[in-house]
Simulated scan of single mutants.
Amino acid sequence: MQIPQIRIQSTQGRIGLTTISAKMEQQQPKADLSIQQPKADLLIETTKGQLSIDTTEARADVDLKSISRRIQEFAQQGYQDWLDGMARVSSQGDELMRIEYGGNPIPDHAKQNSESPMYEFNIGFIPRAGSVKVNYEPAKVKIDVQARKPVIDVQQNKPILDYTPGKVQIDMLQNPNLKIDFVTIDIKV
């Protein structure tokens, strides 16, 4: 008996892939930076110190007096001597007026008027301590500072990108094939 038979023969297709990778290059330029620092405004005001030394009394102690002071002292001394003289003459006149009470006023007055007075003297310092007057007003300093903020200018630079896209190339290395045959087979029964 004869049986028909189908014979199928297939060849698979083959493809080839060639890949070129993508490339990316990146550069970042530095930012442009400008910094300026303005000088601060500085104002200094100084009032000079003053030193005053008054040696008038110290000079007077060593007899270096001004004319006006000498005139004033001599006038004062003359007035005081005149008052002392008037008191002495008045006292002596009173003693002479009462001569009847006894005593010997005329020789006493002669002795009193002719003798130099006794001056008392102790240790003295010339010039006296504290006779030099010193006055000092210290200097005054006023400082005014106006600070200035820095001026900062920044220019950002964008990154530089270079991109090469990747590629995939597909090639047909073997085409698919399908072959179909009809054959009759003899079979013994």
Rank of each mutant, 00 (worst) to 15 (best):
W82I: 06
N177Q: 15
R128W: 03
Q36D: 08
A110S: 06
Q156R: 14
P159Y: 08
G93S: 08
I170P: 02
Q5I: 14
Q156D: 07
Q2Y: 10
G130D: 05
L33E: 02
I53D: 00
Y136P: 05
Y163P: 09
Q50E: 14
N177D: 13
A129R: 05
T11C: 00
V151I: 15
M118G: 03
D84F: 04
D181N: 15
Q2D: 09
I20L: 11
P107S: 09
Y136G: 04
T184M: 15
Q92I: 00
Q146P: 02
R98E: 07
R88Y: 08
D63E: 14
L42R: 01
Q12V: 04
I160G: 02
A110C: 05
P38H: 01
F125C: 02
D54A: 03
M24S: 10
A147Y: 14
I35W: 03
L42P: 00
T56E: 06
E120G: 12
G102C: 07
R59D: 08
Q26K: 08
P165D: 11
D81I: 02
Q169R: 14
I67K: 11
R70Y: 11
S114C: 08
R98K: 12
D108R: 15
D162R: 15
Y101A: 13
V132E: 04
P138K: 10
D61I: 01
L33K: 04
S90N: 10
L43G: 01
Q77D: 13
Q112C: 01
S116C: 00
V62A: 02
G93F: 00
D162P: 00
G78A: 15
Q2S: 05
K188D: 12
V189K: 14
F182D: 04
L43S: 10
N122C: 00
T55Y: 01
A40L: 04
G103N: 05
K158D: 14
I3V: 13
T19M: 09
